[in-house]
Amino acid sequence: MAERERLLAGSASGHFQARTQVMTADDVARAVKRMAHEILERNHGSAGVMLIGMQTGGVALAVRLATAVTEIEGSQIPVGTLDATMHRDDFGLRPVMPEASTEIPEDPTGKTIVLVDDVLFTGRTVRAALDAIHSYGRPQAIQLAVMVDRGHRELPIRPDYVGKNLPTRRDEMVDVNDSGVELGEMVS
């Protein structure tokens, strides 16, 4: 979500400046592999599991997790995307525009959905995504996988699969990109 919020914040809030490299690309690759194992272990295989990447930061991670699952089990699992913008609770407080697509490849009813995002922060996006998923059907269970849990939750939401727990200050910014994970802040 970090990436998306930065996009929405636009030029008014300046731009992201990285301070520390928290994870390298190799660290992220190892974390993806471990999380794929954990997902398979927890769900006793990949049957009935669907990965849903949250737009926009979680989409690439969902695809990587699905690839890792295929490498381990040899089976394909469905991967979708979800833009929960229209279910957010901060309409009217800041500009909110849906801009990314939602694609749920199969009916989620009876399935185990693993929501995937890059950074877990306040938990409000996840709350919106939980609402959004239910307008497509009634899953058997919903689990949450994130690359970085940076704390500061405002809702009773916790991840099931975590790449890295990263203590942060509220005004810091976490960026997950191709070269790994960086911690920094917005400067104007």
């Binding site: 229209m86 309409f91 525009m97 009916d107 609402d131 307008s135």
Partner: peptide, 22 residues
């Protein structure tokens, strides 16, 4: 027109309703 595409997707859901203008 671009925004319309996002909303067309809502109509295809089994519960075609979002809380955007609650």
């Amino acid at each position: 027109l671009n925004l319309t595409e996002s909303f067309a997707e809502v109509g295809e859901r089994s519960i075609p309703r979002v809380p955007a203008l609650r």
